[in-house]
Amino acid sequence: MEHQGGARPERARTPAEFVALLRQVKEASGLTYRQLELRAAERGDLLPRSTVAGALSRSALPKAELVEALVRACEGEERVGAWLAARDRVASGEAAPPPAPDPAAGPAPVAAAPTPAWKRPRALTLAAGVIAVVALAAVGASALNASDEPSDPAPSRSAKAVSVPSGVVRVQPLRAAGLCLTDGRDRKGRYGSHIAVFRPCGEAVPPTTELEPLGGGVYRVRWRHPEHGPGCLAAPAKGAAKGFLEPWDDCAAAARLSVEQRGEAYVLRLEDGRCVGVNGAAVEGAEAVLGRCGGADAQRFLIRRGARP
């Protein structure tokens, strides 16, 4: 059967673009990493969810075996040959042929630009920053704007110290305890670098998450990744990542957070008065966003010791 629409591997020019197209295939399948692993096993393939999650979060060209198993699980056997041929072409550095217009398929998907290191702070160019800020404005608007609920007051200076689990922890939305804070991409695919998102806890490591105490009830979120190394979550003041949390290797520039207890849950408040929340519904891939503290459940988290449930 001829493949209609969807990701077209022949368009890939670089490893980063090839991986971006593979991510489209995974998202279009509607399958979680665990479901992909089980479906691949039914077809006699090995597709560990941690391996495919790591491969899709990087810009390096995945191994042919992983590409074959992933495409077979998502799109079927008939699509494997096209993807492997595209992978071999990208690996050899051969230029992509200009695709023939396909009116029935609609506009061609926009491939992601080569992705910078997930932990590297950087200055965005004016053009890229303006385009991405406009595109991302709608994504975070509901979470970043003022809430209809009463404002959550800032803690008093005499507030009792909060006991926060030490070492590796899981930061989980109060109403979606099966999700954990980890790295990922914005769901609109408009920003080329990694940001903090929520994914099923079984797929959220690496990186590991730690709340590193800085004294005076202030913490920073430190991530450790076997490939990217250590980094800390920063709150960029401008550019395409404004309103999100982004991993940087410069931990001196990390967001400084107070951790306040609200019953069984915690509120993570920045020094500028904003609070960490979940962008929209607490579902797989939802972004961690910064907004006015409103006392909503979307801004309350469970913090539990250990990397996995």
Score class of each variant (00 low, 15 high):
T115S: 15
P116S: 11
P116V: 05
P116D: 13
P116R: 08
A117Q: 03
W118S: 06
W118D: 02
W118A: 08
K119R: 11
R120Y: 00
R120N: 04
P121S: 13
P121N: 10
R122A: 15
R122T: 14
R122Y: 12
A123C: 09
A123T: 04
A123E: 15
A123N: 07
A123W: 13
L124M: 15
L124P: 12
T125E: 15
L126M: 06
A127L: 14
A127Y: 02
A128M: 03
A128S: 08
A128V: 10
A128W: 04
V130W: 00
V130T: 05
V130Y: 01
I131W: 03
I131R: 14
A132H: 05
A132E: 13
V133P: 00
V133E: 15
V133W: 05
V134T: 08
A135T: 08
A135L: 12
A137G: 15
A137R: 14
A138T: 03
A138P: 00
V139S: 10
V139T: 14
V139M: 11
G140T: 05
A141Q: 13
S142T: 07
A143C: 08
A143E: 09
A143N: 07
L144E: 11
L144Y: 01
N145D: 10
A146C: 07
S147F: 06
S147P: 04
S147Q: 12
E149T: 12
E149C: 01
E149W: 12
E149P: 00
P150I: 08
S151L: 08
S151H: 04
S151Q: 12
D152A: 01
P153K: 09
P153E: 08
P155Q: 03
S156G: 14
S156N: 01
R157D: 15
S158M: 02
K160C: 07
K160V: 07
A161Q: 04
A161I: 01
V162M: 02
V162C: 07
S163N: 06
S163V: 02
S163A: 14
G167H: 08
G167A: 11
V168K: 13
V168S: 05
V169L: 03
V169M: 05
Q172C: 06
Q172T: 02
P173W: 06
L174P: 00
R175K: 10
A176Q: 04
A177G: 13
A177W: 05
G178H: 10
G178P: 04
L181F: 12
T182M: 04
T182D: 07
T182W: 00
T182S: 10
D183C: 04
D183W: 03
D183M: 05
G184T: 09
R185T: 09
R185H: 12
D186F: 01
D186H: 02
D186E: 13
R187G: 04
K188R: 14
G189D: 14
R190Y: 09
R190E: 11
Y191Q: 04
Y191F: 14
Y191M: 11
Y191H: 02
G192W: 03
G192S: 13
S193H: 04
H194G: 01
I195V: 06
A196F: 01
A196M: 07
A196N: 01
V197H: 05
V197Y: 12
V197T: 15
C201T: 05
G202H: 06
G202Q: 10
E203C: 01
A204M: 07
A204Q: 00
A204L: 07
V205R: 08
V205E: 02
V205G: 01
P206M: 07
P207N: 08
P207F: 06
T208I: 08
T208P: 02
T209L: 13
E210F: 00
L211I: 05
